[in-house]
Design a protein around this nucleic acid. Structure first.
Lengths: 296, 296
DNA sequence: AGCTCTTATGAATCATTGA
DNA sequence: GTCAATGATTCATAAGAGC
């Protein structure tokens, strides 16, 4: 079996502390779904809504430091309903992150095609989450071709016979200014997506269900990094982000404050052949490399 | 031809002024798509992004006054890209409206299936807008059954082939209660929607294209009002909101600061038989009722 | 009821110029 | 230099007609 040149490293602890050992500009992408604010303290990672922004901001400062200049920070988050209202901590967080120097470049919507069932008297099922895209600079790395989706079959039939009207749209009707050029579609079989991402939530075949499907980090990893780049998930949970990175031949670092999650994530990762798994106790720079256990 | 008991009234002017003549609590729903903040001053209603919140807030105070206690205020809006970033005026507006006493009950997403064309190096096409739902109280009016959607063939085919065992197996496999829910759907042909609304921007054959399709206000009018209720659009534009209200037998008032729009909206409305069209110069309480012109 | 083909259509961004 | 205006460029799909 051949070893490839990418690694997955998992560390147990608070990312605020752990990240201090990493050099500035190391990562090309930070993708994470942080513990959501929750008024119930006993919940894992339960930070009170009113303390959330301050709590997050300290960590975001480290994120900013370890992210490369042309890298991206994608935050999958959704505000909870508190006392019948959507809480505003996410809005406040966006404003605060901008104050911290981040550019709020875009907000992608993850549309959850099969969202959790349920019925309430004054609310429908929540079928979407935010994927906030922050960057350090306006000229960040983006590889749009990597996430193109197959076009429908319509265009094949369409292109077989190009009519005259297809080459230039008749703007005599209203004159609103578009000139559509069908010829642009020649030879294409893929289309660019929009900023709405349609993905079903994965329910269930894993032990611990992740908060998002593998395809979500995959999409952003393909969009914002190249093979061999470095991906960070500071709240790695069951390790979905690192799993996606590994499958796409990116290096990754996953951090979580819950030891069980780190163990779980590491055991998931060990199932990917070709990944070098770093010792959890290793600190960056003097890591003992260890063979992945459980490689077949 | 029979006259029904609903009216559409259009007034020209700044809603800030016009609304002062309306009694408190008159309206059951305010649905509107305000002029978006724009740095280009000449554009219709172009308010500068940095002045937007203050500009809006003064008007929202009147909205709050004329809205009934159990009514809803739905704001269709999307922040523009300014200087490579999403501008934050919408976020700030939400926070400010809460300060003003509104409850930010929910945020619906309008997914624009046919969004504006374009291609940029660091951005995909924008395919969604916010529909922010504000209320005055937690116990607002909501009629969920009115917007139930026919279930697609997805479940019909699925359920037709689904024996009892299949349902049970599905249920236990997933373990999240989803299977149970499928069993509940047996015999039903309608399902509740989620908070993501999929609509194409089909403005159609009108002269002046509306910013949203008829189906958008229709959806919220059905959801938050009953026949005979009162609907307000303080930035009525080409009159789509009032048109939707008329088709659903709700009274409506439309206001716009651009006289051409008011005229346009009125002429659209006049095409709906059964609607009593009020004189534009009428003030509330002493309106001269006028036969709709152009009724066939 | 499907298939093929035709037609319609959109609250956008960005780079550049001008004040 | 900042701000305001102008112009160039741009996709992917849905709905409908005809067979």
């Amino acid at each position: 079996m051949e070893m490839n040149d990418y690694t997955a490293e998992f560390q147990h602890g608070d990312c605020l502390e752990i990240l201090r050992d990493f050099p500035a500009g190391k990562f090309d992408l930070i993708f994470t779904s942080p513990p959501y604010a929750d008024s119930r303290l006993k919940t894992y990672g339960g930070i009170k809504p009113d303390e959330y922004v301050g709590w997050f901001l300290k960590r975001a400062e480290e994120f900013h430091r370890v992210l490369s200049d042309m890298g991206s920070f994608v935050l999958n988050i959704k505000e909870k309903v508190v006392n019948g209202e959507r809480h505003t901590y996410v809005l406040e967080l966006i404003l605060a992150l901008r104050q911290q120097g981040w550019l709020w470049t875009e907000e992608y919507i993850w549309h959850k095609k099969n969202c959790h069932p349920g019925k309430w008297p004054n609310r429908f099922r929540d079928a979407w989450e935010r994927c906030l895209h922050f960057t350090k600079r306006k000229d960040f790395k983006m590889f749009q071709e990597e996430v193109m989706v197959p076009m429908g079959n319509w265009h094949k039939n369409r292109l077989r016979r190009l009519g005259e009207n297809d080459v230039i749209r008749l703007d005599s009707k209203v004159g609103s200014g578009f000139g559509k050029n069908i010829a642009n579609w020649l030879g294409r079989d893929k289309a660019y997506p929009s900023n709405v991402i349609h993905l079903a939530t994965e329910c269930g075949n894993k032990n611990h269900s992740a908060s998002f499907p593998l395809a979500l980090p995959e999409w952003f990893i393909k969009l914002f990094t190249r093979e061999g780049d470095w991906v960070l998930d500071p709240f790695v949970g069951s390790g979905t982000t690192c799993e996606a990175a590994a499958r796409l031949a990116r290096h990754s670092v996953g951090i979580d404050i819950v030891r069980e999650y780190v163990d779980l994530a590491r055991s998931h990762a060990s199932q990917y052949s070709g990944m070098r798994l770093l010792d959890k106790t290793a600190t960056y720079g003097k890591t003992k490399r260890k063979r992945a256990n459980g490689i077949h």
